[in-house]
Each structure stands twice: as C-alpha cells, then as structure tokens.
Design a protein around this nucleic acid. Structure first.
Lengths: 238, 238
DNA sequence: TACAGAAACTTCACGGCGTATAGTTTCTGC
DNA sequence: GCAGAAACTATACGCCGTGAAGTTTCTGTA
C-alpha cells in the first residue's frame, strides 16, 4: 500500500460511482415517480451499460431498498430537526412543528413519500431486517416523544387502557422504553394512533384523493392539529 | 334483425368476454398485486392473444381504470351495507360498524385496497372524470353520514370552525348538502378528517408498516374507534 | 342462399425492462 | 513488468405494452 493509498483511490471511485447511481436514481424518481427508477435509465444517464450497475448493487430491488433507507432517513432528519428546533416548554407548538414538518416534507417530496409508504415499485418486496426499519423506528420514536410530551395532560383520558407491553414490537420498545422510562403502553398506542391520523391525511393528499373532495387540505390539516392538541388536553398557546 | 336478435348474440358474447377479462384480471391482482395485471398474463389465462384484449379495452390503463371503478364500488357497497345494517338509534354502533367494515374489507382485499389507494400500477395516471370518483364520493358521503350522526353530540366542539362551503369540492357538496341539509361546513371537514384517521391506520396496516411496531393492530383500531366516539361526545353504549 | 363487410382474433414486429453469462479493458500491488 | 482483480461491455433470454397487417368467423342483406 502506498503512502497516499492507491488502493484508496479505487475505493473512492467506487464510493463516488455508488453515490452517483443513487443521485441519478433519486432524480429519476423525483421526476417520474418510483417506477422511473430503472437500471437502464440510470445507466443511460451516466453513460454506462445497465449491467455495470450490477457491480454496485446486486439487483434493482437492492438499489431501491438503499434508496428507501436514504429517503426515509431524510424524512426522519426533517421531523427530528423540526422537533429539536422548538422548546420543550410548549408541547402544542412542538407537536405542531413535528406534524407540519412531516406534511411539508411529504408535499415537497411526494415521490419520496410514495417510495417509502406506497407500493415502492412494481414487484418490490421489503426485506425483513435492514436499515429502512431503523428510519421507521426513528419516526416512531419521534412520535412517542410527541405522545410523551402530551402525556402529562392526556394521561387521564386513558385510565382504562387495554394495552400492555406485549402488544408492541420488541424492537420498537427497545428504542422507546429507555428513552421514556415512565411512559405506559397506552402512550405508545396513542403515538401509533397519531401516526395513523397524520399518515392518513397526508397520504390522501399526496396521492391526490383529497383533491376531489376539498380545495384546502392545508386548512384541514391545521384543523387536525388544533383538534389534536385540544384532544390531548394541552392548553392552547398564546 | 331476427326475432331473437342475432345481433344480440354478438353483444352477449362481447359482454361475457369483457366480464371474463375483468374476472381474470382481478384474480391476478388478488394473487400477485396490482402489478400482476398484465395483458399477456390475462390472455394466457384465457387462451387468447394479448392483442385480442385490445378489442375490449383500448389500453391497459383503461382496463385498470375499469377495475378501480369496480373494486372501489365493491368497497362502497361493503361500508354502505354495514351502515344500513345498523340502527340509526345508536350512532356509536353505527360508526363502529362502518369503520370496521372499511378495515375488514381492506384486510380481506389488500390488493384491492392498494389498487384503489396506492400507486395503482407502474405508470398509471388517473383520468379526470369517470366513475371511480363516483365511488369515492359514495364513501365520502357515507363518512358525512357518519359525521351527521355524531353532529348533535359533537357540534359544540366546533363552534369556532374555520371552514366554509368554498373549501370543498362542488361535486362533493352536490351529493352531500341535499342529503344532509342542516349540516354545516365544519361537519364535512370532520368527515374528511375521520376519513384520514381511518385511512391512515388501515393503510399502514395493509402496507405492512404497522407490523414492525405493534403485534395487535386490531386492538389499536378498536382503541381508535372507542376514542373516536368518545371524542365526538357520543355516550358509550351499554 | 350467396356475399360484402364488420367484428374477433392471430401473427409479426418494435422498443423497453431486469438480469444471467461470457468476454474485454483497465487498474493495482508485488 | 506482470498476474490477477476489478470495472465494464456485449450478447442473449424472457418478460412487458402496443402498433400494423393479415386471417378467420360471424351477420345482415340482396
């Protein structure tokens, strides 16, 4: 091995090419949806043969899996950042910031949202383990933080909760329980329900199903947030 | 034209073949998802050439559009039936019946749910008009009925509503306002929000995103319904 | 009943897709 | 300087939707 590492050169080129493949794939996705991610189109864009990509990803599904991971991570970063940017003193503001960041990200990256949450791509089957679930967990952990922030106000609404820890995935609890030791199972259930609420409204909007019903999905979402904080018993801010 | 109508024979065969194409397409979809709907596979199954199908549907997207219409109509029928099967006297039971019918249909016909609400198929673009929006409207009208049933209890929660009629699609209002003349815009917004809630939870479940978080999505959904009726101010039954 | 024409269907062809196999070029470390 | 690995290309196969042209079968009418 030389001083500057000529072996490192190959490796660097490899990393760069891998990055370019992903970059081109994401660009194709942004302009034509998840289905536009074809090896041949990527190769065409890069001045390569489609088969060259097989040196970097064993199969198209592996490429898609990697992209899902990256995009999901970007979403998790966005909502985390919105959360961190607000003060813990005002739960309502925090929750609204998180939710708005979620929706805004989805509207800015509709194809990314589809990639993550839709049929990702023709016959794609999600692998069991891997890093994409990690990003999902980050989002869920963020949601639990949201529920935790509301819990002091909301706890009395859930006295007769039917949930216990066995109702949840161990992998999720592993992340969540250490972070929020005092939180009961009912709060995790609340977090998942809120996830469902927000996901539903956003996904109907992103997929265009709202367009034929309402002209102002924005208003609908803000109403949702207002009702959410109110339902959670959080005093209105200002 | 003969007495029994020999022209009618051609027509009957035509109708039958059209029906068979759709039947086979739905079967393919049920077993392999929306992407398994290929003209060649359908033709193979029917002992025909793929191009023969062009005599019945101008393009594959038109076939898919027809299927979406049929499947969406089936969903609308299912929830309508559940609604009709319950008494108007107990709004909580009615609402829960409607929502459970929605979720159950989705779990029994996951591929149908994907066809309706997902990326329907690789590059498919939904046409503007057509009968599929009609089924969507039926579902939304059902939801409005749901909101209407709850409105006597829930109205005082929405005194400072920000909605007016211009926030909604005229086509929707055309259906909804005659059916529920006394309902304010806020109730329609509530209906759409409830749609979002239910759609979100069900779609996360159908697409498998819940599987890595909770082991009992059923419990989560029932909790959702319990909280929903409670939030709407409907007295708990029994 | 014979026949023109329409309808139903097949054959052939094109380009696009993922991907397997085999061959070629280019780089790297000794 | 050279063996071997790594990167990449060429060719091929079987899928796909779809267009054009040809063939068979049915049907209403003369």
């Amino acid at each position: 091995m030389t001083v500057t590492g000529s072996r490192g050169r190959r490796e660097r080129l490899r990393v760069e090419t891998t990055a370019e493949i992903k970059k081109v794939a994401l660009a194709l996705m942004a302009s034509g949806g998840p289905d536009a991610i074809t090896l041949r189109a990527i190769a065409r864009e890069m001045g390569m043969t489609a088969n060259a990509i097989y040196g970097y990803f064993p199969t198209r599904d592996d490429l898609v899996t990697t992209l899902i991971n990256d995009v999901y991570t970007a979403l998790a970063d966005a909502v985390d950042a919105a959360w961190e940017a607000t003060s813990a003193a005002d739960p309502a503001v925090r929750i609204e910031a998180w939710a708005n960041a979620f929706r805004t990200w989805a509207l800015v990256n509709p194809q990314g949202f589809r990639l993550i949450y839709g049929d990702p791509v023709p016959g794609y089957q999600a692998p069991e383990g891997g890093p994409a679930p990690d990003a999902a967990r980050r989002v869920c952990t963020g949601l639990t933080a949201l529920a935790a922030a509301a819990w002091p106000h909301a706890r009395n609404l859930y006295h007769d909760s039917i949930f216990d820890w066995s109702d949840f995935d161990p992998g999720l609890l592993e992340k969540v329980r250490p972070a929020f030791p005092d939180l009961p199972p009912a709060a995790v259930a609340l977090a998942l329900r809120i996830w469902g609420h927000l996901h539903g409204l956003v996904s109907l909007e992103v997929y265009g199903h709202m367009r034929t019903q309402t002209t102002s999905p924005e208003k609908l979402f803000q109403e949702e947030l207002a009702q959410l904080t109110q339902t959670l018993g959080i005093p209105r801010r200002r």
